[in-house]
């Protein structure tokens, strides 16, 4: 039985040692907001936060999680209030097909939490492990820059 903190909630679930966090989130906990595009750590679609740090859920074993708090895209909004990144992604069309969006948002959140006023180069570098095929990254970089302007309380 695995005990896991996800988005502020505690889950207890059966797992096998060879299930990754990606499978646990999607198949055990029903949190399908976390996507997968390769399952080999090459695309960034399954990026989640472990204690605020972006990691690839497809390469995290349950035994490696310990007591860390997992944040997924489902936990980004504060109740009914969207995170500024989510609003900025909406406003600027940074989510098209939406499949890379969860990973992008979480990589971006970690960046803004650490560096509230990033340069465009810093944004591009922070998102360099998240592949997007729709946007050309332009609106995504803009959206992260826009979210950085949000009132600090909003994130």
């Amino acid at each position: 039985m695995l005990r896991l903190r996800v988005n502020g909630e505690t889950y207890e679930t059966l797992t096998e040692s060879n299930e990754t966090l990606l499978e646990i989130l999607r198949e055990r906990l029903g949190l399908t907001g976390t996507k997968h595009g390769c399952e080999l750590g090459e695309c960034g679609a399954c990026t989640v936060l472990l204690d605020g740090t972006p990691v690839l859920a497809c390469l995290v074993l349950p035994d490696q999680i310990d007591d860390a708090e997992v944040t997924t895209v489902e936990g980004l909004a504060d109740g009914s209030v969207l995170h500024p990144l989510q609003e900025a992604f909406m406003a600027l069309g940074a989510s098209q097909c939406g499949y890379c969006t969860a990973g992008m948002l979480l990589s971006a959140k970690a960046l803004l939490d650490e560096q509230p006023d990033p340069t465009r180069e810093e944004i591009r570098a922070a998102l360099a492990g998240n592949v997007c095929r729709c946007t050309g990254y332009a609106s995504i970089v803009d959206a992260v820059a826009l979210a950085a302007k949000a009132p600090k309380g909003a994130r």
Binding site: G44, P54, V55, L56, L59, S107, A125, A126, A128, G129
Partner: peptide
């Protein structure tokens, strides 16, 4: 080395 998320792990 690799990408930000992989450097975190």
């Amino acid at each position: 080395v690799s990408s930000p998320a992989l450097r975190n792990t």
